[in-house]
Each structure stands twice: as structure tokens, then as C-alpha cells.
Design a protein around this nucleic acid. Structure first.
Lengths: 352, 352
DNA sequence: TTGAAAGCGCTACCAG
DNA sequence: CTGGTAGCGCTTTCAA
């Protein structure tokens, strides 16, 4: 086994019969180097099995070609999608991704940033974990361009790419309304939860603006079993003396012909049980979901849903960062840019 | 805005009135440094807002304190779990994680490794994407310790941590048998698929070794709707003249009292519909799943399932790597170690 | 177009 | 316990 040290540019230059400066020029794109020497250098590189040393290069050029990505500690699918898209976009730009999860508590978060800065990352992409953590601390500590990405964006000192949940919700409600829905309910959103309350409000607002009724926010666990349970309750409260002979759903004595679920799991459980209970979906009642959980699946969908654009968000975040890196090379000159993307409506067989 | 360059060790040393060598010693753990000078240095560091330069340090010490992680391009939950656990374990060891996804094709895969080696990572953790890709190429190209982690492990030149699927399957079948099951079927596993065929074989082998019957591998899409469809077919083929008055399930004229599903989604759909069809689960038929998809959920489970230990696998992979880094500092001395972990059986209300 | 040389910031060796 | 100093491997002026 060859235990000698790795070949360096000196070795390459020597072997090619050129100066180390010339060898370096060839590596960095062969500008202003004669074809003959360039060829000689490339041959030497191949012969020696030379490998460029990114560490030495970084020390000298003060650029590590590296970006730090800070994520919250969720083990959910969408994070995978975000990581992968960020990674791909960075790859295209020839940058490496250093990953770090933010620990609990603000202090640790600052520490996380510090350690990335010690590594001399050229930039930072931060996915805000919660509304409690102060992003300002991060922005203050960072001496490099920072881009925030995610559902909640804080402060306005940094570039960011966010999600327009409300617009998407409106899209969903509009689609159901276009399909003939006049009265809505939600299933699986809890008014007690801060984020859920906002979603309920968004649905209600959409209903109001369209002149359709919002009947109720029905509680349920945000999983398949929750949808099943909710469906059973709905089936039990059907009114045989109702206008359509009991085919329709009734809540609090009011007809409901459209149901917005917290996510696909809930919707799946709901739809499955409703159909078994002889409620036709989407004919008697339309069902849709606010949150797609099936990443990368085909377009032949059962449940109408909103697909959150995490891949696009990752790409956008990298684009903003590259932009910042290119223009100033290290500061936050100019105003912060904010990119907002909206989930995409995927129509399935659960709505018209 | 302070546009001067970042303070260096020279600045720190100067300000503390010590040599740069002493300042460096303080940074690296204050060994053999008098308390007074140590304090002075730490004060200078704080005053100046000095940040250790990991790049320069790495160049000089020939250790980047960095590990490369290569992943396949799946956007599934388990990868999140793996990444997070690897990240946490590396964090504890003070190492940074450089993430990279393997591109399509073997050549690109080698390129991926090369770029990580250019970055001078101290070690490599590789999650094999498919059985087609030659891990040997990676092992050959790598001049640093490599650990493989995942479902499929290739070659035996490197340390690895794998998954004992068969043992786990046997555990699951055994649990159902202990609950009184005498005849099994699978739902959602396709004999045409290579990996699925192996799983079916494992179930069958377990049945054989226990003297219980394996009746059939029922096809179904490996999603909720597949389970629903399978359940409807099963309900339709019930035999009212059967031994238990039609309460039991029958396939090809043979009673089935235990069903092993491809995953939780299928099982959920199956159980939900069976119960609505007045088949008692687990009393008339027990149901279990080979693959848990709900990471990090509570223990009050509906479906009995196998939880794959991705977090533990990540930890183990890092442990092996640290070990290799510690002992030789760069080679594959000694035989390759292989750690095998088994999924954990999570009992739910769908089995006895 | 080319080469010589000066460092990037740090660690580690050696002498005191 | 401390300080001087020689590089780690590369990029980048500056002259030629």
C-alpha cells in the first residue's frame, strides 16, 4: 500500500516541467496558458493521481466554496425534500453543503452558527425551527450572507424565501367552490393550536370572500385514525329526513358539502370511511387536504391536496445566496429580498 | 460597519502579551499553560471577537474534523432519521457533516467521492443507493476510512452497519403465531419485485419453521388505497358457510387468520375497511406491518409494526468511523467490522 | 504567456 | 511552561 503523502501541485509542476504557478492556472481553468503546457500539466495530474486540495485553496483564496445549512430537528418528509433540493442546487454551483441541526434554545443556536463560521462557510441557509428562536441573533452573528427559508420568516434583515399558505388555502377553497361547494367544514385542525387556528381562519376568510358558509372546525387527530373517527361521527349524525334523503352530511343541523382536512392522512381516512358509509365523494361531499405528505408520487391522486414547494424553495434559497455571494462577496448591502412561493393545487378524485 | 479583516491568532497573542504559540495552546485545550496567561488569552479572544479558523487549522494539522455522508436520492422519512442521527453523533464528537447525494450512474458516484476527498474529509459514511452501484469503486477511490450503512451492504472491504430484515420478519411472524395465528397471507408485496420477493420468502420461511401455513401473497399497491382495495376483495370472498359463520377471512378456499402488510399505510387501509366490514381485528384476523413509516410517534399504536432503527444505525456508523479514525488515522487496518441491527417490534391493537 | 515569491492562519517542533 | 519558527498546499500579485 502506497503510504507516501498525496502528490501536491509542486509534484505536478515538476513532472510537467512548468512552474507551480502555471500548474495552478491550469487547475483554475487554463487561462493564459499555452496549449502545450496545459496538456503537459493535465497529463502530470492524471499520471500522479493528483487531487486538488480544497483546504489549502480555501486558506489562500479566503473562499471555502461551502455553504452551511441549519435545520430544525423534525424528522418529516418535507425536510428531506428541502435538503435534497438545496444540495442539488449547490452541487450545480460547485459548492459543498455542511449540514447542522439547531439544538434546543437560543444560545445553542448561536453556537451552531458560530461553529459554521469557524469552518468559514461562504454563506448560510437557515430553516427557522420555531417562532421562539431569535433569528436576529443569527443575523447579527453572521459575517456572511444569510438566507432564511421556510414557513415562518423572521425579521427583515436577511433574504428569505417563504410560503404563502393563505393564498394556497384560498386556491383550495376556490377550487371546491367552483365544484359547487356552498358550505365548508374543516377536519383535524385544532383551534387551540396556534398554527392550526391560523389555517382555520384562512379557510373561513376564503369562505367569507366567496359568500359560502363556514360551518365548523371539527376536531380530530391529524392522522389517518383521526379521519376515520371523524367520518364515523359524521355518518352517525346524518339526517334521513334531510333534503337529499340522508345522502348528505350534516353538522349542527347544517348541511356540509365540502370538507378541508389538515393533511392527506386525515383525508384518506375520512374519504375511505365515508365511501364505505355510502356517502359519495365527491358527489355528496367534496374532500380536500391542506398538506400533501406523499412526496414524489404520481399525478393520479385520490385526494385533492396542496403540495408544498419545498424543492423549489431550496432552489430559490440557493439562488438568493449565490446572488448575494456574487454581488458583494460578504455583506448585506441593499435591501433584503423576499421570495414567496405558494403550494400547488393537485386535483384528485375527492373533489370536482 | 467594521470592514477590517477578522482578527487572527497573531492579534490575540499580541493583545494578550504572549506568543502566538501560547495562544494556540490555549485554544487547543490549555495544556501546559499557566493560569494567568491562559486567562489573558481568553480575555483577548473575547475582546477581539476572535474566531478560530478551521481552514488554516486543517491545512496545518492535516485533519479537517469533517466527515462526508453520501446518500441515495430518496425523499423518504427514513433518510431524514439517518441524517439527523449521524449529524447528532458527529456533533458530539466535534465533527462537521458534509452532505452529498449520489448522482445516477457509477461514474458520477466516483466523482461524488472524489469531490469529498478534495475537501479532505477525514472519513466517509456511505448509504448504498441500489444494488447496481459498485461500492468497490468507492472503497478503492477512498484514501480515508469508509463505513457503509443501510439495507444493502456490498463487498467486505469496509466497515458497515446493516439491517437484519429477516430476523425482524421472523419476530413479527412469531408474535402473530404466539397470538394464535395458524395461517398467513401478505398484502402489498409483489413477487415480481426483487426486494419484495425476498420479504415474501422471509415470511414463508418463518411460517414453515413454525409449522404454520402460508396461504398467499395478495397483491396491492403499497399505499393506503391498496390496503382498502385488498380489504374489499377479502370481504367479498368471505364464506358465510364457513366454520365461523363467515366472520373469518378466506383466500383460495383456505382460512387466513394473520395478514402481514408491506407497510403501515397498507395495514391502516386494510384494518379500517375490515373493521367496517364487521371483521374483528385482531379477533377474527390479526394484522401487522413490516415497515413503520411514522417516525417519532407515540407508543399507543393501532398497527403492530416493525420500526427500523435508522437513528441507531446512524449512531453506530459514526461510532465505527470514529473508531477507525482513532486507531489508524487513515487506513483499513484489520478486518472490516460488520454491525447488524434488527428492527424493533412495536405491538399495536391490530394483533394479539 | 510565464515564473518567482509572498503569504493565507494556524500547528507543531524544537530550544530554552 | 514558553517563544521562535518552519512550513501545510495553494493562489495571486508582480516582473520579466
Amino acid at each position: 500500500m502506497n503510504q507516501t503523502t498525496e502528490p501536491t501541485l509542486v509534484d505536478v509542476a515538476q513532472r510537467a516541467g512548468v512552474s507551480i504557478a502555471t500548474a495552478s492556472r491550469v487547475l483554475s481553468g487554463a487561462q493564459h496558458v499555452s496549449e502545450s503546457r496545459s496538456r503537459a500539466v493535465r497529463k502530470a495530474i492524471a499520471d500522479l493521481g493528483y487531487r486538488h486540495n480544497a483546504v489549502a485553496s480555501a486558506l489562500r483564496s479566503q473562499r471555502t466554496e461551502t455553504v452551511g445549512l441549519i435545520l430544525p430537528r423534525y424528522t418529516t418528509g418535507f425536510l428531506s425534500a428541502l435538503i435534497e433540493s438545496v444540495s442539488a442546487a449547490l452541487d450545480d454551483a460547485g459548492l459543498s453543503l455542511v449540514l447542522r441541526y439547531s439544538a434546543e434554545g437560543d444560545d445553542h443556536d448561536v453556537e451552531t452558527v458560530e461553529s459554521l463560521l469557524n469552518r468559514r462557510v461562504d454563506g448560510l441557509i437557515v430553516c427557522p425551527p420555531s417562532e421562539d428562536v431569535s433569528r436576529d441573533a443569527i443575523a447579527a452573528a453572521a459575517r456572511v450572507p444569510v438566507v432564511q427559508v421556510g414557513r415562518h420568516i423572521f425579521g427583515d434583515g436577511t433574504d428569505s424565501v417563504g410560503l404563502d399558505d393563505n393564498r394556497a388555502t384560498d386556491l383550495l377553497v376556490g377550487s371546491l367552490a367552483d365544484g359547487g361547494a356552498r358550505s365548508f367544514a374543516t377536519v383535524g385542525l385544532s383551534p387551540a393550536d396556534h398554527a392550526d387556528a391560523r389555517r382555520i381562519a384562512a379557510v373561513r376568510a376564503s369562505c367569507d370572500s366567496r359568500g359560502t358558509a363556514f360551518v365548523a372546525a371539527l376536531p380530530a387527530d391529524a392522522v389517518l385514525a383521526g379521519g376515520v373517527a371523524a367520518a364515523n361521527r359524521l355518518l352517525a349524525s346524518r339526517d334521513p329526513a334531510g333534503p337529499d334523503g340522508g345522502a348528505g352530511l350534516v353538522v349542527d343541523g347544517r348541511r356540509v358539502d365540502a370538507i378541508v382536512c389538515a393533511n392527506d392522512d386525515v383525508a384518506h381516512g375520512l374519504v375511505t370511511v365515508l365511501r364505505l358509509g355510502d356517502v359519495a365523494v365527491p358527489d355528496d361531499v367534496q374532500v380536500a387536504s391542506l398538506l400533501d405528505v406523499s412526496f414524489g408520487e404520481g399525478d393520479d391522486r385520490d385526494i385533492t391536496t396542496l403540495r408544498h414547494p419545498w424543492p423549489a424553495m431550496g432552489r430559490e434559497a440557493v439562488r438568493l445566496l449565490l446572488d448575494a455571494l456574487g454581488s458583494t462577496g460578504g455583506g448585506d448591502a441593499g435591501g433584503a429580498r423576499r421570495v414567496t412561493l405558494a403550494p400547488r393545487l393537485l386535483k384528485g378524485r375527492s373533489s370536482r
